[in-house]
Computed example of a mutant assay.
Amino acid sequence: MRLGEEQFYVDPATLEPLTLEQAACEGDQVVSGVLRSPSGHRFEIAGGVPNFVYPFELPKADREARQQSEDRVEGYDRYLPLTFRTYGEDEQAVRNAMVDKLDLKPGAVVLETGSGTGRDSEIIAQRLGADGRLYIQDIAPSFLAKNIERMRSATPHVEPALANGYYLPFADNSFDACFHFGGINAFADIQRAFSEMARVTKPGGKIVVGDENMPPWLRETEFARILINSNPEFAYTLPLDKLPVEARKVRLEWIIGGVFYVIDFVVGEGEPVADFDFAIPGVRGGTHRTRYHGHLEGITPDVKRLAYEARAKTGKSMHQWLDDVVREAAQRDLGKPD
């Protein structure tokens, strides 16, 4: 960890600032030490890499996913190209196309969660230039170690950390973009992971995520049954319902043989905004807001028929007629002047 970076990190549980203690440095690199929050949470730095993994006792799904990564790290880079060869795809072309979706500019500050051994990290780094900063994170120490080695000669500053993808150790609006490809299916809390990515990305920034998924129109084919038999993750549900409310301009694409999804979106602020208060022309009238908030108790069919006949005679919209009638009756019964 570079000296001074401790000010960029926060406690992933409380989002409180961190204080560097017991630091041992080599030049501007913090080799070991402790990052402590006001709540008393301690995050160790070992070999220059801070460990922000939280919860401190991981759920079973996360423990199993981390162990699976550790078990296959030695053969990962050797065998992963077989995935692309299976579908006749060019790995570098596919990965570059995914990174294109981030709309990166030189000098950007980017977060890659679940960064693995760095096959996407090196492509992202090439787009950032000398003034850029790339934060690479993974929950598996062996995967991250491979990535660190791969990125030693990268042009931008690369800052590694161990972290859980759904408890990110950064303040709101810290990054220009966020990227995660592979491993989302194994998250214990996918919805929180997407929400965290949106939280730490600046409004207007891009998020790109993806993983295995068999599209609905292929699920009953032999093609699908063969792949799902080899890798049950192809049968996982597409997590569109897990996207955050801040997601704007959402795009979905299936790549790599049509069995890996990629979702990219622009980060907005809160729920979408719309004009719910303009008068809607027509017989019904009112506004979107009054139609939603203006419900009254139900009336009998005969009274409803009389109301529509009366409205038609006046030429008013039903909204205006009801508003006038109810207001007049209420003021009369309350003894209030018009």
Results as ranks from 00 to 15, higher is better:
1 M>C: 02
7 Q>G: 10
8 F>R: 12
9 Y>V: 06
10 V>H: 10
16 E>C: 14
16 E>A: 15
22 Q>S: 03
26 E>I: 06
27 G>Y: 02
32 S>F: 13
34 V>S: 13
38 P>I: 09
39 S>F: 10
40 G>S: 08
42 R>I: 04
46 A>G: 01
46 A>L: 01
60 K>C: 00
65 A>S: 00
65 A>I: 00
67 Q>D: 01
68 Q>W: 00
72 R>V: 12
75 G>P: 06
76 Y>R: 10
79 Y>G: 04
83 T>P: 00
84 F>Y: 08
88 G>W: 03
89 E>P: 01
94 V>P: 03
101 K>Y: 02
104 L>G: 02
105 K>L: 13
105 K>Q: 13
106 P>W: 14
114 G>M: 07
115 S>Y: 04
115 S>P: 04
116 G>H: 09
117 T>Y: 03
128 L>F: 03
129 G>C: 02
131 D>N: 11
135 Y>G: 04
136 I>F: 13
137 Q>C: 14
138 D>I: 10
139 I>Q: 08
141 P>E: 09
142 S>F: 09
144 L>T: 07
144 L>H: 09
144 L>Q: 11
146 K>E: 12
155 T>F: 03
156 P>H: 03
156 P>M: 03
156 P>D: 01
161 A>Y: 12
162 L>T: 07
164 N>W: 12
164 N>K: 10
165 G>K: 06
167 Y>N: 04
170 F>A: 02
173 N>R: 11
176 D>F: 02
177 A>F: 00
178 C>D: 02
178 C>E: 01
184 I>E: 05
187 F>Q: 07
188 A>C: 13
188 A>F: 13
191 Q>T: 15
193 A>Y: 05
194 F>I: 02
198 A>N: 04
200 V>T: 02
200 V>C: 01
205 G>S: 06
206 K>M: 12
208 V>P: 07
211 D>K: 07
212 E>R: 14
213 N>R: 11
213 N>C: 15
214 M>F: 12
214 M>T: 10
223 F>Y: 07
226 I>D: 13
231 N>M: 15
232 P>Y: 14
232 P>K: 14
234 F>N: 09
236 Y>D: 12
236 Y>P: 06
236 Y>G: 11
237 T>Q: 14
243 L>Y: 01
244 P>V: 02
250 V>A: 04
251 R>P: 03
257 G>W: 00
259 V>L: 00
260 F>M: 00
262 V>D: 01
264 D>L: 11
267 V>A: 08
267 V>S: 08
275 D>C: 07
276 F>W: 08
282 G>H: 10
283 V>F: 12
286 G>A: 12
287 T>C: 13
288 H>N: 14
289 R>N: 15
291 R>G: 15
293 H>W: 14
294 G>V: 08
297 E>H: 09
305 R>M: 05
307 A>I: 09
312 A>M: 06
314 T>S: 15
317 S>H: 07
317 S>L: 10
324 D>C: 04
324 D>G: 03
326 V>W: 05
327 R>G: 01
328 E>R: 04
330 A>L: 09
334 L>R: 04
337 P>L: 12
